[in-house]
Design a protein around this nucleic acid. Sequence first.
DNA 1: GTTCCTGCAAAAGCTTTGCAGAAGA
DNA 2: TCTTCTGCAAAGCTTTTGCAGGAAC
Lengths: 138, 138
Amino acid sequence: MADLFLMLKEELKKRNISLSYQRLKIVEYLAQHLCHPTVEQIYTHLVPSIPTLSKTTVYNTLRVLLDAGLVRVIEIEDHESRYDVVMEGHGHFKCESCGCIYNFHVDMDALSSEDLKLFEIKEKNVYFSGVCPHCRNK
Amino acid sequence: MADLFLMLKEELKKRNISLSYQRLKIVEYLAQHLCHPTVEQIYTHLVPSIPTLSKTTVYNTLRVLLDAGLVRVIEIEDHESRYDVVMEGHGHFKCESCGCIYNFHVDMDALSSEDLKLFEIKEKNVYFSGVCPHCRNK
DNA sequence: GTTCCTGCAAAAGCTTTGCAGAAGA
DNA sequence: TCTTCTGCAAAGCTTTTGCAGGAAC
């Protein structure tokens, strides 16, 4: 993948979204951790280097990115939202043992149904769950 | 579809889950409203006929049904859980305008990926969103 | 009598809102 | 200066837990 972080910065500049230090760090974190972090994870990871950071700012920033269409929310039978910065056609697999979320390729175009021919489809999500290879080997 | 309500009652009896009046009504509601109700919807609908009903009981009952494998939880970018009593291979479409959730047929077996060959897949969910025909015509 | 079910009240957890002060243009 | 961003505190929501009273067997 080309540098996702740079691409995101570019996109933000294009949309006139100012890039404060906090926002920069959050975007950087998202670009480096494609495992779909929760607000909690982002916050916990960044607080050591930005001691004044608040969760409100994490929420605010994610909301801004969401409105700009740069991230997507996914919720897989949790009551925490997770944020996804890669938008191409892929599904999400959640390991019920370690809780980690993996991406896998899905041909979203092939995924349709006669039942929906009169529907306007704007978003397609595929969520699997089970046990990942790492946990199976234990 | 054969009578889903009777089928569910049968399944509950098989599993030795006692069927109180409250539980009976909740199961009946689920069987009659396949549009994936929230706890709120179930509660609001049943309270007039069962004035002493509490949401705790709705939660309790759904938990029991969940543990018995008779319902499934779905969460589509809401912070409310919705409950699904039909287990066969189908996806869920949420209309972003009216909020209603529709089922549509998906060939879940055809839906897989090389990426997951080492994973143990236990559940497959397909969530679409967009605008339903009814709302498009407004 | 023992077990399970109900439902009030309170707590817990995630997210949003109000607002004042700080930072940036 | 004027606007935007930050972050504390508090509120809002959904869901869970503790527990006492009640129903069923």
